[in-house]
């Protein structure tokens, strides 16, 4: 790694001030925040990112706790390690979905260093983005090399002009749990956003970024807000399905986070969010509409089959595969089916 200065600020306010002092151009800031660093070190060591100094958020003493409210929703500090999310006791649909998603991330070593906030703010895994010699759209160039190149791991939904996929597993799970995030910025400013609104598509603005965070902003907290206690009937169930080339220690080729609210075997509310297939966590209103109002039939029945096919088709509405990633369409439909199968038990 190129040499840099390592700064340990004593508060988030100091950290965001330090970050604001850095260069404002996102792709070329000389000062970056570091939390677990598991993604950032990869960028620094390959040389696709260079910094003059790193500002360690872990030193700030900011929130690294998990709080469970009586309904079962969770408030998690952005500095919580993925190991601790993965070890959440399987109490209810929120904790079990998050624990399953966290456990599917990388390896035990990386989970004990990686933080929730860092997982949500990961940079793309695209082969071209990660190669220092490929000055692609994401790095300020003028071409997405994946589009006409090797695109087995790239987007089938929401792509263009860049075709990266967002690599986070926690992001689709948390979007399915109606999570909101708290963001701290320079000058003590804080703002809250639905997690879904943290992410942007390449076509929506600055193609070199995946989130709306400014260089001086950091995530501080995530809070799930699944309507667990309201007057609506039924109970929530959740399922996490992730498919990867190796069974351990790999990114998702496709993933499905599904939450269903079921009353008398009828689906009264639904969240379907796809990972690994789009530049952002891909919430599928079409799949949710295909599920809501239907009977959650027993797996093996013709009714279950029809529901799984309809939901899978709906989830892939608008999918446009590139040359090498057409497999993601049947794969994702299969994961939707697996999620429904788990939830129909």
């Amino acid at each position: 790694m190129k040499d840099f200065e390592y700064i340990q600020p004593d508060s988030i306010a100091t950290a965001t001030e330090l970050l604001a002092e850095g260069d404002a151009a996102w792709s070329n800031v000389s000062r970056r925040a570091i939390a677990g660093g598991q993604d950032l070190f990869g960028e620094l060591k390959t040389g696709i990112v260079e910094v003059d100094s790193l500002v360690d958020l872990k030193a700030t003493g900011a929130d690294n706790t998990i709080a469970v409210d009586p309904s079962g929703n969770l408030r998690i500090g952005a500095l919580v390690k993925l190991t601790d999310v993965a070890e959440l006791a399987e109490r209810g649909p929120v904790a079990s979905l998050l624990a399953a998603a966290a456990l599917s991330v990388a390896s035990p070593q990386i989970r004990s260093q990686a933080t929730l906030g860092g997982n949500l703010c990961q940079r793309p895994r695209c082969l071209y983005y990660r190669r220092p010699e490929a000055i692609c759209l994401k790095k300020g160039g003028d071409e997405c090399f994946a589009y006409g190149g090797h695109n087995k791991y790239n987007a089938i939904l929401g792509g263009g002009p860049s075709f990266i996929v967002h690599p986070s597993d926690l992001a689709p799970a948390l979007v399915a749990l109606d999570a909101k995030v708290t963001i701290a910025g320079a000058g003590g400013a804080t703002r809250e956003l639905p997690l879904a609104d943290l992410y942007t598509l390449p076509s929506e603005g600055d193609v070199t970024r995946e989130t709306v965070l400014t260089p001086s902003e950091v995530l501080t907290q995530v809070e799930t807000q699944l309507p667990l206690v309201d007057r609506m009937a039924g109970t929530w169930r959740s399922s996490w399905q992730k498919f990867r080339e190796r069974d351990g220690f790999d990114f998702a080729l496709s993933a499905v986070a599904m939450c269903l609210r079921v009353a008398d075997r009828r689906i009264v509310d639904a969240r379907v969010v796809l990972g690994g297939v789009a530049p952002r966590p891909w919430r599928s209103a079409e799949a949710e509409a295909a599920l809501i109002g239907q009977e959650l039939a027993t797996h093996g029945s013709a009714e279950f089959d029809a529901l799984a096919v309809a939901a899978g088709e709906a989830a892939l509405t608008g999918a446009e595969p590139l040359d090498h990633n057409g497999y993601k369409i049947p794969l994702t439909k299969g994961l939707v089916r697996r999620a429904l199968q788990e939830l129909s038990r």
């Binding site: 390592y6 660093g37 070190f41 035990p108 070593q109 990386i110 260093q113």
Partner: peptide
């Protein structure tokens, strides 16, 4: 007590 990767951890941290 937790397994971590010494290559992805700053000595200062």
């Amino acid at each position: 007590g937790k397994p971590e990767l010494a290559c992805l951890l700053l000595a200062g941290a």
